[in-house]
Write a protein that binds this DNA or RNA. Structure first.
Lengths: 266, 266
DNA sequence: CGTGCTGTTGAGGACGATCAATGACGGTGG
DNA sequence: CCACCGTCATTGATCGTCCTCAACAGCACG
């Protein structure tokens, strides 16, 4: 079996296939609409999408956005998988969030350019990223104020995800991993069962050692939740949700921020 | 460590005797001038402060803001100590943040009224709270746009605090507790050495059992960091910072959000 | 065919949870 | 003033989860 890495899915555009394949092959053939966490599709997004220009191809393992990044543009993941992380002083990697096609990268870093947090966005597979110039975004936001709501909503959801993770950090490793898997399924889309992450990456995000993560995987396989092969494939989503006591509401922006209008001054 | 302004903070004026004491006694005697992150000039804050009306006295242990709170007003802690928390299904309490006089309570809940997170703000001592009506706030924000930046900046700092806590959750208990104490010192102010929290509350926030928290306290006392009496009193702040590898930058709003303007529509 | 990354398995040990009981302190009512 | 009570702090003992170290197997890639 091929590696899981390199697989990405498209669930933004309606007609786009979301087939899984392996290793290093870039499969996303196009991306019609951006998908930020919590940003439901709307007519404004069409206008938004026109602002995006594909800028760069990023090799797997490279840093997309560095620690002291003061962005004059907003970065968007067009294709591939990435994560936001920091390094502990002992070298261990703390992963805060995974990003999939359509996600804004380090949104809070764009909204708060002066943040001194040593955050880093790293490509977990070969990626394509798009950028939106700050000036262009400014204009768009003036025409479509609700777009700003979406931006802020997405940032607030990032915070919700962090809070949620604080909760499960106090639970045993199996539930921690299970919850993380649930979250990825929810982010990836309804019919997605294959999670494009390695055990190492899941371990770094769940705060569990790689060895123990592997044992948890085996437990989950015995429970009939994960498939037997080397892939991270969920075969019993219902059971997984039960094990994790997962409630995906915290990922919904819903009508978040309704009534608010965000715009950019000069 | 420059300006450590705290989370969601409209902090008391500097000259005010806001000395805290141990569990049970709420001693903040007054609150004259608010202070908010990211706003150098205080003329906006004066206008802001006039909107606040003291509404209620909250008894220790009571809930200030319930889980499904859809606020038509913004709540502000005038006096006392409070915390934002959730309950685990087993009854354990997860504390996300402590609030001190001048802090906004559950700011994200105000910015995202539709959030379904079961968050709760609870009074840890007898408290006085103030409220700002949403309509009034709306008007004020239109006259003083930078206030909106402050609101959003404070919300983003809440997220930073959560992220930071995710980092230290992977470190041993002593450093976890030490870091939490550092954070409280930074939030309380420069000269404050007495932390108005019980070991139980610190345990619930640090994710350590109460028993083990007590043992950590004793270790910290042997290290000469905490005083010998039953109070949570820091006598060697420098050493505490070293133990925790604390860097308070993540609490700075700095010039966050400069260039942004937030206002409220209807 | 080596090299590197990921996944897998075993053994030993540390950290911290849990249970249980006691001490210290403040407040309350008799 | 004293007995009683509730909350918080403290201590000991036991046990489980999970980390660490170490080695090896499978697979992709040059």
């Amino acid at each position: 079996m091929g590696k899981v890495l390199g697989v990405c899915s498209l669930r933004c555009g309606a007609g786009l296939g979301s087939h899984m394949q392996h290793a290093g092959k870039a499969l996303c053939l196009g991306l019609e609409k951006p998908r930020a966490p919590g940003v439901a599709s709307s007519r404004h997004l069409d206008a938004f999408w026109k602002l995006v220009k594909v800028r760069d191809r990023i090799e797997r393992g490279e840093t997309i956005i560095g620690p002291m990044h003061r962005s004059k543009h907003l970065t968007l993941l067009v294709e591939g998988v990435a994560c936001m992380s920091t390094r502990h002083e002992d070298g261990a990697r703390q992963i805060y969030a995974f990003y999939y096609p359509g996600d804004f990268l380090a949104l809070h870093g764009f909204l708060m350019p002066s943040s001194t947090e040593p955050l880093e966005v790293q490509a977990l597979t070969n990626c394509f990223i798009g950028t939106i110039d700050r000036n262009l975004l400014e204009q768009a936001l003036q025409h479509h104020p609700s777009l700003g709501q979406s931006l802020w909503g997405a940032a607030m959801i990032e915070a919700s995800v962090h809070r949620q993770r604080l909760i499960i950090m106090r639970r045993p490793a199996l539930q921690r991993v299970a919850h993380l898997l649930c979250e990825q399924l929810a982010r990836l889309g309804s019919d997605q069962r294959l999670i494009p992450l390695s055990q190492i990456e899941i371990a770094d995000a769940a705060g569990v050692s790689v060895v123990h993560t592997n044992r948890v995987f085996q437990d989950l396989r015995k429970l009939g939740v994960l498939s037997k092969d080397r892939l991270t494939e969920v075969v019993d989503k219902q059971r997984l949700h039960e094990l994790a006591t997962f409630d995906g509401h915290y990922l919904d922006a819903g009508e978040a921020l309704s009534g608010w209008d965000v715009r950019i001054e000069g």
